[in-house]
């Protein structure tokens, strides 16, 4: 009897989650299986499958001359963007949490970079940074800071820094709002009690607010980790991973292996490796959110 009702309970949810499950199976699970299958096949450059070839694609990937520097760059990309995003979002969320006239307008303005299409944002940044026509050069020259225009996206290191700036720019709104949500959950009585006990200003933030923000911080950091690692449009629209391969991450490299080097099999191997990294991030996320549930 008891087991029967549990079964019915599970089954009862299916009409509602059914379409979503089907959608996930068709749009997410099946392509992922196809991708993994492709990574073990030989695909000729026209796109025709020539059959199973074991781990050859993975061997080719490991020997790909562009891979080592791309992996290093991807690690830098993900860690710098996520850390700086959180560091910027903390004070911004704190400001938005305070009461001041026009708070609604400011809160709304912060959402804009998030709401705008990432490709659009990236293209606008590309033109602002353009060496011949960019507004940044115009401003710096008018202020007398620069004598000659600089092609900001032409030098690999400079270009990579600007890519990270844009990635931070589009990641801050989401992170800010998650932290803001965390701030609103901190009960007033705790803050009042701490004030009575003499904790004020920085001390109160360090000892009371920040520790209580940890769950929100961890969640936003892990979601950012996934987003930033997967980020294709910013890099593609601004530098195309170039000059050469000098601003690629493993995500854009997977695309280039397929469509520049014409090697779909090796590209699928790269994408599968990326997929595994994402799975690791997701398992961290699940652990973190579970930890949050038990602690709160």
């Amino acid at each position: 009897m008891a087991t029967g009702s549990i079964r019915r309970g599970r089954f009862g949810a299916l009409p509602w989650i059914g379409p979503a499950v089907v959608l996930i199976l068709v749009m997410v699970v099946w392509p992922a299986i196809e991708m993994i299958r492709t990574s073990f096949h030989e695909i000729d450059q026209t796109g025709i499958a020539k059959g199973w070839n074991g781990i050859t694609n993975y061997k080719n990937l490991i020997h790909n001359p562009d891979l080592p520097q791309t992996v290093v760059r991807t690690v830098i990309w993900v860690s710098v963007v996520v850390v700086v995003t959180v560091l910027v979002s903390l004070p911004v969320a704190q400001i938005l949490h305070g009461k001041f006239p026009g708070r609604k307008a400011v809160r709304f303005a912060i959402i804009v970079p998030w709401a705008a299409s990432v490709v659009m944002t990236a293209i606008i940044w590309r033109w602002m940074l353009d060496g011949f026509y960019g507004i940044l050069n115009r401003i710096l020259q008018d202020l007398g800071i620069l004598k000659e225009p600089v092609d900001w996206l032409g030098n690999p290191n400079q270009a990579f820094i600007f890519l990270m700036v844009v990635a931070i720019f589009v990641s801050v709104p989401f992170t800010t709002y998650v932290i803001l949500a965390g701030l609103t959950t901190i009960p007033d009585d705790i803050l009042e009690a701490s004030a009575i006990d003499g904790a004020n200003g920085w001390k109160r933030y360090k000892e009371i607010i920040f520790p209580l923000l940890r769950p929100a911080l961890l969640v936003s950091a892990v979601i950012n980790l996934i987003n930033v690692f997967n980020s294709f449009p910013i890099i593609w629209a601004m530098t195309g991973g170039g000059p050469g391969y000098s601003t690629d991450t493993t995500t854009t490299l997977a695309y280039k292996i397929s469509f520049r080097d014409q090697d779909i099999g090796q590209s699928a191997a790269m994408a599968t490796v990326n997929f595994i990294v994402i799975l690791i991030f997701i398992s961290i996320f699940l652990k973190v959110s579970k930890w949050r549930e038990t602690s709160s």
């Binding site: 059914g18 379409p19 089907v22 959608l23």
Partner: peptide, 20 residues
């Protein structure tokens, strides 16, 4: 109730399938 749920489930599956 159970049979209605089943019908709804089947219908949703069919809808999703034709949709895709």
């Amino acid at each position: 109730k159970k049979s209605m749920r089943r019908t709804a489930f089947a219908a949703s599956l069919v809808l999703a399938a034709t949709g895709v």
